[in-house]
Nucleic acid binder design. Sequence first.
DNA 1: CTGCATCCTCCAAGATACTG
DNA 2: CAGTATCTTGGAGGATGCAG
Lengths: 150, 150
Amino acid sequence: MFYTYRMGTIEKPTHSSTASDTAQQALVHEMLERIADKWTLLVIEELAQAAAELRFTQLSQRIPGVSQKMLTKTLRQLERDGLVTRRVHPVIPPHVDYTLTPRGESLGEAVCGIWLWAEKHGKQVLRSRHAYDNRTRMQPPASSRASYTS
Amino acid sequence: MFYTYRMGTIEKPTHSSTASDTAQQALVHEMLERIADKWTLLVIEELAQAAAELRFTQLSQRIPGVSQKMLTKTLRQLERDGLVTRRVHPVIPPHVDYTLTPRGESLGEAVCGIWLWAEKHGKQVLRSRHAYDNRTRMQPPASSRASYTS
DNA sequence: CTGCATCCTCCAAGATACTG
DNA sequence: CAGTATCTTGGAGGATGCAG
């Protein structure tokens, strides 16, 4: 479990390098934000699924609803982190191919745990939500008599 | 790998129930957004680490920088999804205890994959970023002669 | 075709004040 | 103590126009 890791390696004061620890933590959170943002995971999926180079337009077609601004931005981030490669063919009109790097593929696999969790617990979560909503929706002011301690 | 799952179960037209499939996909993305948001994972960590009930104030103390508004909201979402339990003691002043449910614990464990990925690839990612930034920062207009196809 | 620049809108979330 | 209510703001992200 990651808390064990966190407690053992990051929060224990016995460990010397404090700066890199917070950096690690920040990076974890950053990567979570990345894959959670609207498009990153979809791009990775498409590239992994294609298992081949895809052009900018091909990607935009396979990812419904993405604007080129967001697609560009997403791809730049992925490229910057070394998760995709960007090959520009110097021709006119331009021709740009994107591929997943091994590191990018490994990230896709790492997300699998959450995917499986959602697959396994999805229905229960939805049931909990309905129950919660029913419980709270028709909740009257709830004359909950509190016992004063004074 | 999750793309296999996605291709096999969600995108194949042979599978009949389209509505629940998109719901599944949406739920995956939703859970990713949740755990990626600024506070959810921190709350889960603290509750898991404490392995006991924590009061609202205790949580806010252990999570530096969180406003009560955000903490409240986060806890409500977690409660709605059945990931934490909220026990209100009807006394004055109020006393509210929060605990992780088994489902909540399982989510924490599911995140482990990404945690480990970040631990393993963190340094490489940072190195890629620096390389990328150096490459692009001092990039001149790059008189890249493109060969016209016309 | 690919992608940058600009404008504009909208809402998440912080700050602050108040309450049972 | 554990919240709600209200106000405000930064920035994410869509739409559009332009460029190599």
